[in-house]
């Protein structure tokens, strides 16, 4: 066990998998000698050699296409797209190719790649360093979509993603890289040191895809969330004093519908929270599942707290970000219903 922040945990997952499986190759913009702009691949080139961890041209479409080709050969590419906001040039390769290769070839060819990419706001990155594009990928059949919320989960989920034979979009909440963040813009910087999920095994372990985590048990209502919003939801729960059950989905595809349904059937209320824009966000999918499966146990309409339906504005970072005040207000309103 070591105390790790999320970057270190992700780095450790790389090292464990590169050690274990010589087919794992790592590449992306600035990931080689430099170790990535967020330092997630630091030291890997020195340790495993330049053939296993190297810089890629600034060509997201090329990076994903090359990874698909390597996958066809039999390698297991673990690639980085520097920011989720820059994944769009690779959209065709991901949605038309990686996602459907298994299907269209009758299972002959597969795309066992993992695409890591930092997402979300909270670092004053403006509209091109803050986006949460998960719903663009959950809508594409054939792709898996994973979002960790702690160093422990990040490492275990990343290992599971690399070992998975299907393409995985691994969205890393960049605001959580160096510490948990409850969403108050005035909060000082916290670190993962001392946080239970900042204690991370040094070796190999799995956190399975498709298994949600009930991070707080409660009876009054269910809050469904993932990534940065897990910490925001916990803060809102504490601040409102509402006995909410907070469910960290951890992976959106595959989705642990069973845990969600059991929780909402128990509490009778459901709030969905995500940082991505509201309309056609993944929250809409969750709300549809919950109303279908839990309708007769619901005591209030399902509600969603999300990013506004605007691009992420630089100066209004904190007005845009769905922080604990907005989440707490929705929780209270739901309890009054």
């Amino acid at each position: 066990m070591s105390s790790m922040n999320m970057i270190q945990a992700i780095n450790s997952a790389h090292a464990v998998m590169m050690e274990k499986d010589p087919k794992v190759v790592v590449f992306g913009e600035d990931v080689g000698y430099f170790g990535g702009v967020f330092r997630a691949t630091e030291g890997l080139q020195a340790k495993f050699g330049i053939n296993r961890c190297f810089d890629a041209p600034i060509s997201e479409g090329g990076i994903v296409a090359a990874a698909i080709g390597m996958g066809a050969y039999g390698l297991r590419p673990l690639i980085e797209i520097q920011f989720a906001d820059y994944i769009y040039p690779a959209f065709d390769q991901l949605t038309s190719e990686a996602a459907r290769l298994r299907y269209r070839s009758g299972g002959e060819f597969t795309a066992p790649l993992t695409v890591r990419t930092p997402y979300g706001g909270g670092i004053f990155g403006g509209q091109t360093h803050s986006q949460s594009p998960e719903a663009l990928f959950t809508h594409v059949v054939g792709l898996k979509v994973v979002v960790p919320s702690t160093p422990y989960d990040a490492k275990g989920l990343l290992i599971s993603s690399v070992e998975d034979d299907d393409p995985v979009i691994f969205l890393e909440p960049k605001r959580l890289y160096t510490g948990p963040f409850e969403g108050h813009s005035t909060d000082g910087v916290k670190t993962w040191a001392g946080h239970p999920a900042g204690e991370v095994p040094d070796g190999h372990y799995n956190v399975p895809l498709g298994k949600a985590n009930i991070v707080r048990e409660g009876n009054a209502m269910t809050v469904l969330c993932y990534g940065t919003m897990v910490h925001v939801a916990l803060a809102a729960t504490r601040e409102t004093g509402i006995d909410a059950e907070v469910v960290d989905l951890r992976s959106l595809v595959p989705l642990d519908a069973e845990t969600i349904i059991a929780s909402v059937n128990k509490t009778g209320r459901c709030l969905v929270v995500h940082e991505a824009t509201y309309t056609s966000g993944f929250g809409a999918e969750l709300a549809a599942i919950v109303q279908q499966e839990c309708f007769y146990n619901l005591e209030a309409p399902i509600d969603r707290v999300c990013g506004w339906d605007t691009p992420y504005p630089h100066v209004f970072e904190w007005q845009y970000f769905p922080g604990p005040d907005r989440v707490g207000a929705a929780m209270k309103k739901m309890m009054e219903a």
């Binding site: 403006g126 509209q127 091109t128 504005p313 630089h314 100066v315 209004f316």
Partner: peptide
């Protein structure tokens, strides 16, 4: 500075 004088209404990265 993304201030009140910014014609881009504070939306863009510096």
């Amino acid at each position: 500075y993304s201030n009140a004088g910014d014609r881009l209404k504070g939306r863009q990265l510096p």
